[in-house]
């Protein structure tokens, strides 16, 4: 019984839960105090804003849990966007372009995965390299121009809502993918192995976990998702450009860390990350509605990120102190 209480208490004071509570708080306060925040129109905008971050954050969370990182995702997005425009100009049908683009993203992931797990290079260095490489290729493909004449059936679907109501179409996609990734990460043997790899790769290897293979597939999935996001991004703005999504990788990593995932691997949960993404987007959206400048937005995001790393340490220190004092008092009255 007390066992369950203790588990519950530690679960409630963990960063994952704090961030979920914080997110709900921001949403509630903003919908009451910020004009237009709670409108269905603004809700659609918010969902479209967080769409790229949240989708890329799903595989990114797994990669960071294994103690690695993928910084090339935004460039993969840019490359698929360019390819999408180029293929459209070649006269291919949109129905064949979309799966092709996802495959292109996956191939980018295969290259990352091979360099990291096949040749054993550090993922930070490799993906900084491919970040530049894929973006460069994107410009080779499309140059400075843009392709804009995608069919309205598709661009309209991305920005539209279900039956013209309040629920954006892409929300279905987000919920479905988040559910799949959440179940894989938290309720499958594969998900369990990610945490073991991140915390102690050698012990994982000794337990029969195929460490390299696992990481390789994570990069492939990460590339494929980045490819999908490249398609969605292009359709949303009805514009295929080489510089689409530039800098997005930092927003994704920031959101994942804000969600309580340890940059050293082995720790973190997907609900925390989802809350982290929503918190960041909602806060930026609300501040923008209040006409706060872009620089100020960056300051808020940065501060939040530092706090997310700082606060968990502070809470454990405080909790430890409090426990010690209690024990001392108990001993004094004995």
């Amino acid at each position: 019984m007390s066992d369950r209480v203790a588990t519950l208490r530690s679960r409630l004071t963990s960063w994952d839960s704090i961030i979920v509570v914080l997110t709900v708080l921001v949403l509630v306060v903003a919908s009451f105090s910020v004009d237009n925040f709670g409108t269905s129109r603004n809700f659609t905008f918010m969902v479209l804003d967080l769409l790229p971050i949240i989708l890329i954050a799903l595989p990114m969370t797994m990669i960071i849990v294994t103690g690695e990182i993928d910084l090339s995702v935004a460039s993969t997005l840019g490359l698929t966007s360019s390819m999408m425009g180029w293929l459209w100009n070649q006269g291919l049908s949109i129905e064949s372009i979309i799966p092709l683009c996802i495959v292109i993203g996956a191939v980018c992931g295969v290259v990352n995965g091979f360099l990291i797990t096949g040749l054993g290079l550090p993922s930070l260095a490799v993906t900084i390299g491919t970040l530049a490489l894929y973006r460069g290729l994107a410009f080779v493909v499309l140059g400075d121009g843009a392709v804009a004449d995608f069919p309205f059936d598709y661009t309209g679907w991305v920005t539209g809502t279900i039956g013209g109501g309040a629920v954006p179409n892409v929300l279905i996609l987000i919920v479905a993918l988040a559910l799949i990734f959440g179940i894989v990460q938290h309720a499958t043997p594969f998900g369990r192995s990610l945490y073991a790899i991140g915390a102690n790769a050698q012990a994982a290897h000794f337990s029969g976990i195929r460490v390299a293979r696992t990481k390789f597939w994570l990069y492939v999935v990460s590339g494929a998702v980045a490819g999908l996001v490249g398609v969605l991004w292009t359709l949303r703005y009805a514009s295929a450009r080489a510089d689409n999504g530039a800098g997005l990788e930092l927003a994704v990593v920031a959101a994942v860390l804000l969600g309580g995932v340890s940059i050293f691997g082995g720790k973190g949960s997907l609900p925390g990350v989802l809350a982290g993404v929503v918190l960041l987007t909602a806060l930026q959206n609300a501040l923008r509605l209040e006409d706060v400048s872009g620089q100020a937005l960056n300051i808020v995001t940065g501060t939040l990120l530092v706090l997310s790393v700082l606060l968990p340490n502070v809470t454990t220190a405080v909790r430890g102190n409090w426990q010690r004092r209690k024990l001392r008092q108990a001993a004094a009255t004995r």
Partner: peptide
């Protein structure tokens, strides 16, 4: 510590 167990888990 290094091979048998994942100490943090």
């Amino acid at each position: 510590r290094q091979q048998g167990l994942v100490m943090e888990l």
